[in-house]
Amino acid sequence: MYSDRINALPPYLFATIDESKAKMLAKGIDVIDLGIGDPDQPTPSHIVESMCQAVRDPATHRYPSYTGMLEFRKAAARWCNETKGINIDPEGQTLTLIGSKEGVAHVPLAFINPGDVVLCPDPAYPVYKIGAQFAGGEPFTIPLLEENDFLPDLDAIPADMLARAKLMFINYPNNPTSATADRSFFEEVVEFSKNNNIIVVHDNAYSQMVYEGYQSSSFLSVDGAMDVGIELFSLSKTYNMTGWRLGFAVGNEKLIKGFGKVKSNIDSGAFDAIQRAGITALTGSQQCVSDMNRIYEKRRNALLKGLHGIGLDVKPPKATFYIWAPVPKGYDSMGFSQLLLEKAGIVATPGVGFGPYGEGYIRFALTQSVERINEAVIRMEELRI
């Protein structure tokens, strides 16, 4: 019944986690969900109010622009300049997305022919490989290893793969490892891209989720990056707008144009009322972002203390709202996540769900209150791991 491309896909990780969680809830078990990275706090009120006003305007009820409202793209370009120090043309170098997941999934369709290689990090957000497969491409795994600070070893990619490679995904601050990258890494990527004629797509969805004064870099802020790639930004995590589905791509004009051709043939653009709310988010006070980061930092510290207390060697992340922890000796990632769910009522994501190189780790999302995280810690201590 199904197409070969569907039959080739593994079960989508987070859908499987939802099913397991539902079974536990059906048994009446109090579940603490530290699995999927879905912010638990509401969208800031000034953004919600902007949406309410916009949705009452009949002008927003018509088909939106395929490339996005120019006013939203101008706001996105201005935000990029203010937060990342990069100059973006809102007309030729900016494209509105229906969330960055949509962007990740669709961008290979613009550039990948059957048999082309797409360089995909591992462990990583599963949609990088899935998007490559849907486009007929061949995903090639580039391992992210702890001994390399979860940065890819570009020199280790085989020459025969480089000869066929046309696109590469990178993602820093990183999901799931929480690793960060400095400008020197991005400079290495630009040189690598130019030497091998490879398009770079930097998924920068967690750019503003930072702690203790850390500021994440933009790939496009490096000299030459605008020649070889694009960067994807999301309003989902930064502004607690996961359900709203809004993001944007910026970068090389030819790449943005090609990407835009795909979108104009697949979707009809983001709802204008949501884009107006997005303008409010991007141009208004960013205090709401700072406030959320302080909340996540307190949660991070509480969970780190608990994980250290049960003997797990976990490094404090400087960004994202994830903690990437090694599993205890004697467990693999699936076994440990099942133990946490079945014996402690805690949902966490097994590292192998992000790819083979995620084996041996588990990911916790900081999407519960400090009180609930402390309860999760008590439950883990009672397991006597």
Rank of each mutant, 00 (worst) to 15 (best):
E188A: 15
V189Q: 07
E191W: 09
F192A: 14
S193Q: 10
S193M: 08
K194G: 02
N195S: 10
N197I: 11
V201C: 04
D203V: 15
A205M: 13
A205P: 01
V210S: 09
V210L: 11
Y211E: 07
E212T: 12
Y214G: 08
Y214M: 01
Q215V: 14
S216F: 09
S216Y: 01
S217C: 11
F219T: 05
L220I: 11
S221D: 08
S221R: 14
S221T: 12
V222M: 10
V222P: 05
V222W: 06
G224C: 05
G224T: 10
G224F: 07
G224W: 03
D227Y: 02
G229F: 11
G229D: 08
I230D: 02
L235R: 06
L235T: 08
L235H: 02
T238Q: 01
Y239P: 08
Y239S: 02
Y239E: 02
Y239M: 07
Y239R: 00
Y239V: 10
N240M: 04
M241I: 05
T242Y: 14
G243R: 00
W244V: 06
R245F: 00
L246V: 13
G247V: 01
F248H: 05
F248C: 04
A249I: 02
V250M: 05
N252A: 03
N252H: 06
N252S: 05
N252V: 02
N252Y: 06
E253L: 08
L255D: 05
I256W: 09
I256H: 00
K257C: 01
K257L: 07
K257Q: 09
K257P: 00
G258P: 00
